[in-house]
């Protein structure tokens, strides 16, 4: 018995490597200055899906919602072993919070269909919310298992997952389809396969093909899409119209949470008392702490 998986992936700014230039004077983040990377836990999620494919057969489809440049991580999914990739992109999706994002993703998943398992990273490092997975599962009316550490078994249409809980772990059994979010130590994502890099480095999304037609008037977009599809190099691209979405539930309009204010974390040069690294210094410090009933 084979199992088809859909993997939710996200391109994120590399928040672990933020330098001075990235923070604007008004305290907001200059995203353009941040390197965009493949959210690590999503790569772990893809690894989970690929392991299931290796063991049982089936198809792995990677999907991302994001701006056109997010196609980079879809190609990386293809390099790792995904069979198919979808970019879900539309200007009208901009500014989406987790509720609006999960609406779009769930509708895209319904359109793609034919899945047994949905995987995603526990959370993305830009927002660290861990909300999109459960919210997508709720909209699809399927069970969720978050903080997954290991797939224990997959048989008779049921999956057993070991997940982290406070102070330990539990093993849950769920029928399929189910949505599973994984934590970073759950698996080591496999490296790219050289053969697949060669095969898919020219894979392109609709927006990327449109760019080609802009620079060459002899090219027609429909023709290009056909050609790339035949060569298995077309990254399918879903827009708001294509998904027939309710505009009021997408992007800023569909997002109940709003950013009211952002402040960069400024280190207050607190007036700490410098204690000389000498016996006298220690003695004075300890006296003061004892006097304040903090020590002794």
């Amino acid at each position: 018995m084979s199992y088809n998986s859909i993997v939710l992936v996200k391109q994120v700014p590399d928040t672990a490597n933020i330098s001075g230039q990235v923070m604007k004077d008004d305290g907001t983040v200059n995203r353009a200055k941040l390197p965009a990377i493949f959210n690590f836990e999503d790569r772990v999620a893809l690894e989970f899906a690929l392991q299931i494919k290796d063991r049982f057969g089936g198809k792995v489809t990677a999907i991302t919602m994001g701006p056109p440049r997010a196609s980079d991580i879809l190609r990386e999914c293809l390099y790792m072993g995904a069979d198919d990739a979808y970019l879900i992109s539309d200007r009208k999706f901009a500014g989406a919070d987790t509720l609006a994002t999960s609406y779009v993703l769930s509708e895209a998943i319904k359109k793609i269909g034919n899945y047994d398992l949905i995987f995603g990273g526990r959370q993305a490092i830009d927002g660290d919310t861990a909300q999109v997975g459960p919210q997508t599962a709720e909209k699809l009316h399927i069970p969720q298992i978050t903080y997954a550490q290991e797939i224990i078994s997959l048989e008779n249409g049921k999956v057993r997952i070991r997940r982290k809980i406070e102070g330990g772990y539990e093993i849950l059994e769920s029928p399929l389809p189910a949505l599973i979010t994984v934590i970073k130590d759950a698996a080591d994502p496999r490296p790219f396969k050289a053969r697949r890099v060669m095969a898919y480095k020219n894979a392109k999304t609709l927006m990327e093909l449109e760019k080609l037609t802009e620079s060459n008037s002899l090219l027609y977009i429909d023709q290009l899409v056909n050609e790339y599809t035949t060569k298995n190099l077309y990254i399918r691209t879903l827009t708001m119209d294509e998904l027939q979405l309710d505009a009021a539930r997408c992007g800023v309009h569909g997002s109940p949470t709003k950013v009211h204010k952002v402040e960069s974390v400024v280190l207050s040069s607190s007036g700490h008392q410098a204690i000389p690294p000498t016996k006298e210094g220690m003695s004075k410090l300890i006296d003061e702490l004892m006097h304040d009933h903090i020590l002794g």
Partner: peptide, 11 residues
């Protein structure tokens, strides 16, 4: 937010 580099107020 952003890996702890900013403090956001959400409403």
């Amino acid at each position: 937010a952003f890996g702890g580099n900013i403090i956001a107020t959400i409403i």
